[in-house]
C-alpha cells in the first residue's frame, strides 16, 4: 500500500514534495470558489435553484452550531461549514477517480490540530489561564497525567478516526478491484484484456465506502469539533 503520489517538488529547503493530496485540495478549493462566486454573485430575494441549497446549507450549519455549542457561538459556524465542506468533498472526490484528500493522515491531523488549538485557546479565554491550568488537577491532583493525556489524545483519535475510515475504505476497494481482476484472469485464462468482473460490484461498495462513510465521517468530525470547543468554552 503506497501513500499519495508526489506530483512535483518545490526546490526549496532541500525539496518540498507536493503530493496528490495537496493538488486535489487545490481542485476542491477552486471548485468551491467558483461555485460560491456563481451562487452568491446574484443573490435573489426569492431564492431559486442552487441558491436554495446554499441557503439551506448555511442555515443548517448555523442551527447545528446553535444546538450543539450553545448560544453566542455563531462565529464558529463558518469554520465548521468549511471543515464539513472540505472533508465531505475531499472524500467524495474519490468518486471521480482521484485519491481522497482525507485518505492522507496529514490532512486529518492538520484539521484535528486546529480543533485542538481552538479547544485549548477557547478554554484559556473563557476560564482564564489560572483556572484553566487548575482544571487539569480535577478532581484530585493525582489525575494530572491522565487529564493531560486525555487532552492530547483527542487530536490523535480525531484524525486517525477520519483517516482510518476513509483509507480503510480505499484499501478494501483496491483489494476488491485487484481480486476481481484476478478472477477475470482465471475465468477467461487471460484471453480477455478487460477485467470485466470489475463492472458493477465496486459501484455498490463505493456507495457505502465513498459516499456514506465519507459524509458520515465529515459530520462526525464537525460534531466532535463542536462538542470539544463548546465544552471548553462553556462558562
Amino acid at each position: 500500500m503506497e501513500g499519495p503520489k508526489i506530483i512535483f517538488t518545490i526546490p526549496l529547503l532541500g525539496g518540498i514534495p507536493v503530493t496528490e493530496t495537496v493538488v486535489n485540495s487545490w481542485f476542491i478549493i477552486l471548485a468551491v470558489f467558483i461555485a460560491c462566486r456563481l451562487i452568491t454573485r446574484r443573490l435573489q430575494k426569492v431564492p431559486s435553484g442552487v441558491q436554495v441549497l446554499a441557503e439551506k446549507y448555511v442555515t443548517m450549519v448555523c442551527k447545528l452550531v446553535d444546538d450543539t455549542m450553545g448560544k453566542n457561538k455563531q462565529r464558529y459556524a463558518p469554520y465548521i461549514g468549511t471543515v464539513f465542506l472540505f472533508s465531505a468533498l475531499g472524500s467524495l472526490i474519490s468518486l471521480l477517480g482521484c485519491r481522497a484528500v482525507t485518505a492522507d493522515l496529514n490532512t486529518t491531523l492538520s484539521w484535528a490540530l486546529v480543533t485542538f488549538v481552538m479547544t485549548q485557546w477557547g478554554g484559556i479565554r473563557t476560564k482564564g489561564l489560572l483556572s484553566w491550568l487548575k482544571g487539569f488537577l480535577d478532581p484530585v491532583p493525582v489525575m494530572l497525567p491522565m487529564n493531560i493525556m486525555s487532552e492530547l489524545v483527542n487530536p490523535i483519535s480525531l484524525s486517525f478516526r477520519h483517516f482510518g475510515n476513509i483509507s480503510a475504505g480505499m484499501v478494501i476497494t483496491m483489494l476488491i478491484y485487484s481480486g476481481l481482476a484476478a478472477l477475470t484472469n482465471i475465468v477467461f485464462q487471460g484471453l480477455l484484456p478487460v477485467p470485466i468482473f470489475q463492472l458493477g460490484l465496486p459501484a455498490i461498495l463505493s456507495i457505502y465506502f465513498d459516499v456514506f462513510s465519507g459524509v458520515l465521517q465529515a459530520f462526525i468530525f464537525c460534531m466532535l469539533t463542536m462538542v470539544f470547543v463548546g465544552m471548553a468554552t462553556d462558562p
Partner: peptide, 26 residues
C-alpha cells in the same frame, strides 16, 4: 445525532488498534 457521537467516541479503542497496526506495517 447522540448515537453517532457516542459511536464515534466508542470507536476510539478501535482507532488506537488501527493506529498501532498501521504503524507496525508501514
Amino acid at each position: 445525532r447522540t448515537m453517532l457521537l457516542g459511536c464515534a467516541v466508542a470507536e476510539s479503542t478501535g482507532i488506537y488498534s488501527l493506529v498501532i497496526a498501521l504503524i507496525l506495517i508501514f
